[in-house]
Amino acid sequence: MKKRYILLISALVLISFVLGVLLSRIVRDFPLITFNHEIKIFEVLTFILTLLIGILFPFLIKKWIEDNRSIKSCLADEIKAILLTSLKIKAIIEKASANNNILATDKDEINFIFHEMEMQIASFQDQIAISFKNESQAISNELKKKFHEYKDYLTGGEMMTSTFTIDQKFVRAHVTHYSLFERHLKSLTHKIYHL
């Protein structure tokens, strides 16, 4: 498809040039236009450069900009998906707080949501490594660090014990830990667009 366009444009340029030469031979008294037989090398270069910009910009540079933008948008969507999954944990804690009771099935569900998030993080890690190899390591490591800080707080402490009872102190501490993780995900979305 791209080859066809280039061929078409080249043909059009050639036809226009030939037509121009023929026209100048037939109509010899064009006002204000004189045909200069002496061509300087920099004029030829300028002509080629202008032609290249005219062809390269719409077909290559514009495509590169659009591709880059869609890759970033795809990565930002992966982060948004992690954020949406994490909201399910927040909802379980809020529901348990409203009922003044957290069930064993709630804890199993929280563990499963963390598992889901781990797979989403693994997917993000793979995707970012394809397009931004140099920055991917630091970004993925920071994301995993923040994720494990949040996960360790929730599943590494008293909440996992069978004698745990949910109270406002725990709910407030959870909001703080959750917000830190959420803030990191939101900042990461912005960071991706600046890559």
Binding site: D108, I110, N111, H115, T155, G156, G157, M160
Partner: peptide
């Protein structure tokens, strides 16, 4: 095949 490993279990 495990539906999530709590950090306290791993530790």
């Amino acid at each position: 095949g495990v539906w999530g490993y709590p950090s306290s279990f791993v530790s």
